[in-house]
Simulated assay, not measured.
Amino acid sequence: MTGTGFEYTLTRTLDAPVDQVWAAWTTADRYAQWTGAEDVTFDVRPGGAWSSVMVIPGGARIPLSGTYTEVVPHQRLVWGMTVPGREEPVLMTLDLSADGDRTKVTLSQTFDAAEERDQAEQGSNMLLDSLTNYLATA
């Protein structure tokens, strides 16, 4: 992620080994379990496509898609998401760092406007909450 704009970075340490956290982000059926997404397809490699339909509270269905730009197994995942009205995809970066049986997770994104950033940051916090709950019962 380069450029200027409005960025957020979220960091959490999860009570799960890095391989479990990696699998939660990169295995379609596991991702669907903790995000509540439907119709999830992943081709986790640079240039590989992904898609899902997020079901948000209230039942609205939001189709999402994009491509992976960087994949370093068990360490780093960077993917773009196609956003209507934008020429360039919005990139999200996930960095993982093993700490024994725990994993430090860092999510970051950059946006052109503060409002976009704030909405994405709220959504990412909700994702990390869901991931934390999923891993506690996995």
Score class of each variant (00 low, 15 high):
residue 116 E to V: 00
residue 37 A to K: 01
residue 105 V to C: 03
residue 52 S to D: 13
residue 110 T to N: 07
residue 33 Q to I: 13
residue 17 P to D: 12
residue 83 V to W: 06
residue 7 E to S: 13
residue 98 A to I: 02
residue 28 A to Y: 10
residue 42 F to R: 00
residue 15 D to S: 12
residue 35 T to D: 02
residue 49 A to C: 04
residue 2 T to C: 00
residue 94 L to H: 09
residue 35 T to A: 05
residue 46 P to T: 02
residue 122 Q to V: 09
residue 77 L to H: 06
residue 119 Q to Y: 00
residue 80 G to S: 06
residue 17 P to E: 12
residue 89 P to Q: 07
residue 67 T to G: 11
residue 123 G to S: 12
residue 39 D to S: 14
residue 57 P to M: 12
residue 13 T to S: 07
residue 118 D to W: 03
residue 55 V to Y: 05
residue 34 W to N: 05
residue 25 W to S: 02
residue 63 P to I: 03
residue 64 L to H: 15
residue 76 R to C: 09
residue 56 I to G: 08
residue 23 A to G: 02
residue 44 V to E: 06
residue 63 P to V: 08
residue 76 R to T: 15
residue 13 T to C: 01
residue 115 E to P: 00
residue 71 V to G: 10
residue 94 L to I: 14
residue 36 G to W: 03
residue 52 S to H: 12
residue 2 T to A: 10
residue 106 T to K: 11
residue 84 P to F: 10
residue 16 A to V: 04
residue 74 H to N: 15
residue 62 I to S: 14
residue 103 T to P: 03
residue 23 A to S: 13
residue 84 P to L: 11
residue 33 Q to G: 07
residue 117 R to I: 02
residue 136 A to S: 15
residue 6 F to D: 10
residue 101 D to K: 13
residue 109 Q to D: 06
residue 81 M to C: 12
residue 1 M to I: 04
residue 38 E to P: 00
residue 125 N to M: 08
residue 138 A to R: 13
residue 102 R to P: 01
residue 132 T to K: 09
residue 136 A to V: 08
residue 49 A to R: 14
residue 115 E to F: 00
residue 36 G to L: 09
residue 113 A to F: 07
residue 6 F to I: 01
residue 114 A to M: 09
residue 59 G to Q: 12
residue 128 L to D: 09
residue 127 L to Q: 11
residue 15 D to P: 02
residue 41 T to L: 11
residue 50 W to F: 12
residue 41 T to D: 13
residue 131 L to H: 02
residue 83 V to Q: 10
residue 124 S to V: 01
residue 62 I to A: 12
residue 57 P to Y: 05
residue 17 P to C: 10
residue 82 T to W: 05
residue 110 T to G: 06
residue 17 P to I: 06
residue 6 F to S: 12
residue 107 L to D: 04
residue 58 G to D: 08
residue 99 D to F: 06
residue 95 D to H: 12
residue 125 N to S: 06
residue 26 T to V: 03
residue 70 E to I: 13
residue 124 S to A: 14
residue 73 P to R: 09
residue 72 V to M: 10
residue 137 T to L: 11
residue 67 T to K: 15
